[in-house]
Design a protein around this nucleic acid. Structure first.
Lengths: 240, 240
DNA sequence: CGAATTGTTGAAGTGCTTCAAATAACGTGG
DNA sequence: CCACGTTATTTGAAGCACTTCAACAATTCG
């Protein structure tokens, strides 16, 4: 888990927040420090000071919270390009941890603030990033509150696909237990739903941590995101 | 449902986001237009353009999303002082609706942006507000994903109490159905949990839409927010 | 190659939902 | 101000989706 002072430009590969689209790449380039982590490597803990913004360069991480009796909720899976770590309070309410070999850039908050003070566009970008995280959180509220187990797992896969370079194949850095804690399910239920989608012909499971999408439309339909409004044919699948 | 052009200062009574603490009251004062709504009055619909920020002056509102088959998830209840309406995308993903007689201020987005362009502190404030909404959404993820029905309803009451002027009495503008759609439960389950907390002696129900808190500590304990870490005596209540 | 970890599948249990009915609260017009 | 229809809430009983417990299979790693 080395920490270099060398600044690096965030991976231009899988960008999730249109972050490189604006002209702020140059600004960010000389601002952050890189952290390299391996599976379960802690980026920050619940209760740590919120004194920086972070961004995933490569790999996968997650934000989570654990209740006194051990119940865990993963708030979000973070993929390359994703920003995180900004909260309103003085201390983190969620912990941040790497799921596999992961590289993260750390941007000290006061430096960002100083830049934003002089560059309104940059400040606006920070605001947009926060708003995008809020949108994602709101989507997750609908998922957790009102979707069935099958819809939840299908939605999760759709989300992974959306961020993957190949929309027909996804490699999962997280375990079934991690996915369960993200979707509000047990790991057994997650596994069962994967099997069910396999039997339905929506996906194939070449390995435990890899998913091949056989029928993208069916998957979207199961997830409750019917691509074509006029043909909600498979809506019934999720309930029958 | 009238719309005046007269600008008004948001109620300085129950402020939830420390919004009046900073010196931006003067700025906001001359910026917004007031909207008066009654029960079920629509502030904006899903799909409408995201061209403004809003703030509750008085009353209560909520953000919600409805699935094609009618399932509804309320993302957040909005109380006096709360800001809302800012999203990253060009259109609203959640609709906004009043729950009772409610007054809302509407701040056109481009005007806010123009002010933020010249006043970095104001821009920072907008950012902080977005981050606070994000914190609240993350808390709700834990609630929806991992808490039991009793814990959910107790947590909901704790949240209402936190925002109420009198911490021993809360008037609820929302129906049991609204609360259910907020907590990912049916209205019957919400009602049963209210009854259960009454039998436990944590609350009294002088009217259907009013709650008197008899044992604040017990309520906090049921909600999973034990005030005193060393005495998690009642943690068992939620599960027995 | 064998031990440990992770994933899958089965069977029984339970917490919440669904369906149904009764009660209470509300609003409206007489 | 009260009677009445309407709507919201409470409570009961049955059903079901997901969990829990348990065993087995597959994969990983020393």
């Amino acid at each position: 888990m080395s920490t270099q002072t060398i600044a690096m430009h965030p991976s231009s590969g899988a960008v999730c927040l249109n972050a490189d689209a604006a002209g702020d790449a140059d600004i960010l380039r000389s601002l952050g420090t890189i952290q390299s982590l391996s599976r379960n490597g802690r980026i920050y803990a619940e209760g740590d000071e919120t004194d920086a913004w972070y961004r995933i360069v490569s790999g996968t991480a997650c934000l989570y919270r654990i209740m006194p009796d051990g119940r865990r909720q993963i708030g979000v899976f973070l993929l390359p390009g994703d920003f995180f770590g900004f909260e309103a309070g003085p201390t983190h309410r969620f912990a941040a941890e790497a799921l596999g070999d992961t590289k993260v850039v750390r941007y000290p908050r006061n430096r960002l603030e100083r830049i934003a003070d002089k560059d309104p566009d940059f400040g606006r970008r920070l605001r947009d990033i926060a708003c995008q995280r809020l949108d994602a959180a709101h989507d997750q509220l609908l998922l957790l509150g009102r979707k069935t187990a099958l819809e939840k797992v299908a939605s999760f896969l759709m989300e992974m696909i959306r961020h993957a370079p190949d929309s027909a194949f996804v490699h999962l850095d997280m375990s079934r237990g991690d996915i369960g804690d993200y979707l509000g399910l047990t790991l057994e239920t997650v596994s069962r739903m994967f099997s069910q989608m396999k039997h339905l012909g929506a996906i194939a499971l070449p390995a435990a941590n890899a998913v091949r999408v056989l029928d993208h439309e069916m998957l979207a339909s199961i997830a409750g995101e019917a691509v074509d409004e006029s043909t909600p044919v498979l809506r019934a699948v999720g309930r029958a």
